[in-house]
Design a protein around this nucleic acid. Structure first.
Lengths: 195, 195
DNA sequence: GCCGAAGTGATGCAGGTGCATCGGAAAAGG
DNA sequence: CCTTTTCCGATGCACCTGCATCACTTCGGC
């Protein structure tokens, strides 16, 4: 048999390059040539890994979705002793991508969300990600409080987290202010039925 | 003096075309040629109204910002007799662009937000819009309830509204669900200190 | 009535895009 | 060592992009 190559590894390497470029100049700054150069492979290699550009973008989106999801899970399993309340706080903070080191991820996320509004395949990936997060949030909320409608609370929290990310990215809020808003919301969530 | 033309009117006409195209295929689908064709003017006319493409986009963003702001103001002044609470509810619903007839505006808004993350001039426009909205929300909230921190509540509401818009656009939430979430949040806002 | 300036729109241009193609390099089996 | 099969990477090809150019139309003032 002839030369064998780690396809999955190369795909991830390319996805990483896509994210870097999207962070720097938006999704429309992502061209096959630039991606190949950034990933230190030839353009032909990129085209063999992904039949089309859209396929590449879809994979890259799934890639960062997995990364965020993994971080959330890590936060949850790493602190099983703490209360579900602090766990939810950590998870929400993680999803909001408010920390400076995740600003790049946030920009990439926003670029993909905008593209997803006019690209069904991308929207499909995002939907499954959000559904997963909402499930986790719902579970945590019903464990941590006696809110009457945990699902609605989870939807609220998820939307708030995304809105805060957006507002930080365009410079309307500072990361610290966004964190303060998130904390305040969580506090009200706990107090609303158990004063 | 030679031929005179309504420049401002034509600019608005072009901005309208930009919004239509951005709604259909995202901001990267907005080319000078397509804009000219959609606005029923020649490409030269577009280039005379706006020195560069970015200048055109900035104007278009300001245009839809004004439209949303005008709708919010209209809602507020049209119902002065009602309580500040219902006024805030109407304003928040308006900002969320949840009604079907505003779906196009929402897609355009999202496209611009994503672009603003890598384009300072666009971000500047968005920031001033959000600052204005936040001021209005803060005033309404402090009038309508005795919340200890009206500014934080306003920031929360604004971020929640944007997050809901996003989630509806990518199909994670239905408009009705989003409205339900928004209503629930407003109800909790009133109850939190006056049970 | 016509003159000249303001506004118009077709065309040109250099650069960049995604995708297809094809000669050749690399690795297993004989 | 050589063949053969798989993969690689450079190049080519239409096409489209934003922007600049320039002959032309149009209209107010004399």
């Amino acid at each position: 048999m002839p030369k064998q190559v780690d396809h999955e590894g190369r795909r991830r390497q390319i996805a990483e390059a896509v994210c870097q470029l999207a962070d720097e100049s938006g999704l429309e700054g992502v061209t096959l040539r630039d991606v190949a150069a950034r990933a230190d492979v030839s353009m032909g290699a990129v085209q063999r890994c992904f039949r089309t550009k859209e396929e590449m973008l879809v994979f890259a989106l799934g890639h960062i979705g997995e990364r965020v999801g993994a971080r959330v899970s890590a936060r949850l399993t790493a602190s099983p002793a703490q209360s579900a309340r602090t766990a939810l706080g950590h998870a929400a903070t993680e999803v909001s991508l408010l920390r400076d080191e995740h600003r790049a991820e946030a920009r990439v996320w926003l670029a993909f969300v905008a593209q997803a509004a006019v690209s069904p395949p991308l929207a499909e990936i995002l939907r499954s990600n959000y559904t997963g997060l909402q499930t986790v949030f719902t579970r945590l909320i019903s464990e941590a409080s006696d809110t009457e409608d945990p699902e609605r609370a989870a939807r609220t929290l998820l939307a708030l987290a995304d809105g805060l990310t957006t507002h930080v990215l365009i410079g309307h809020l500072s990361p610290a202010t966004a964190l303060d808003v998130l904390d305040g919301h969580l506090r009200h969530l706990w107090n609303q039925k158990a004063p």
